[in-house]
């Protein structure tokens, strides 16, 4: 049956996106659980150092919210994969939809998840410091660097961008797996296999790729790199997704 109602792409995407925000609330509760687990890990400290003379020894234990950020990145990566799975896709067909609106609403959802994940990851780092201060060691905090307001803003934005980058990567992996299910096994095996094989020849693949983003000291260049990479990953995902059979 044909519909005579003129459906606006923007409206459909918006409706789907809002629906996903409401129905995928589990994605965000899992973020909370994960960040709390990461906080627990971080309470043990990320390193330490010190020194002393004969009658005293000063020990400084260092704490950082790095683990929270890494967990958040893993969280978005896995969720990027999961939202491409059948269980999620079925939800989309409650609406008038096609691959494009589905993908666009997924990307918007990933963006929102990255925004929430990035901001809460940095905020969890602050929570870690407060917990350390009040429950473990009520001494003045030793800060290793002064961070200016602009650096904080860059830092929060960079965290969001990192989270989005890995969300996009997860989305691509998910799309590939949906296209060809056996890739669910082949991809991780190939990834770790190549990693080990190259490492045995002193070629550090992850380090090399990581440096491209993690060692970029210009915020503008970093943003360009991440947005470009994410864009490419998402366009490839969209192309792959369009190759899938049409659901009737």
């Amino acid at each position: 049956m044909m519909s005579l109602v003129n459906v606006n792409l923007g409206n459909v995407v918006k409706k789907q996106y809002l629906f996903k925000l409401r129905s995928y609330v589990g994605v965000f509760t899992s973020l909370v659980v994960l960040q709390l687990i990461a906080l627990l890990f971080s309470l043990g400290g990320t390193g330490g150092g010190g020194g002393g003379s004969g009658n005293f020894h000063v020990m400084i234990n260092y704490y950082s919210g790095d683990v929270v950020i890494i967990f958040t990145i893993l969280w978005v990566f896995i969720n990027g994969i999961l939202i491409t799975t059948k269980a999620y896709r079925e939800d989309d067909f409650s609406f008038v939809t096609n691959r494009l609106t589905n993908n666009l609403s997924n990307i918007l959802f990933l963006l929102t998840a990255s925004l929430v994940g990035g901001v809460t990851a940095i905020a969890s780092g602050i929570l870690l410091k407060v917990i350390r201060y009040f429950f473990f060691n009520a001494e003045p905090i030793i800060t290793t660097f002064s961070i200016s307001t602009i650096e904080i803003i860059y830092g929060v934005l960079a965290t969001i961008l990192y989270v989005f980058l890995f969300g996009s990567l997860g989305y691509l992996v998910g799309s590939l797996v949906q296209l060809y299910k056996k890739l669910a096994i082949i991809l991780p095996v190939a990834f770790f296999g190549i990693l080990f094989a190259l490492a045995s020849r002193d070629i550090m693949l992850v380090e090399g790729v990581g440096e491209f983003y993690f060692k970029e000291t210009s915020f503008l260049l970093f943003t360009v790199k991440v947005i470009t990479t994410s864009g490419i990953l998402l366009i490839v995902s969209l192309t792959i997704s369009n190759r899938q059979e049409v659901r009737l």
């Binding site: 400084i60 234990n61 830092g155 970029e216």
Partner: peptide, 18 residues
């Protein structure tokens, strides 16, 4: 000898990257 412990807070890597 006594042990004096302090907490040192390292800003997250995304805060120091730039």
């Amino acid at each position: 000898p006594i042990e004096i412990e302090y907490s040192g807070y390292v800003p997250e890597f995304t805060l120091t990257q730039f």
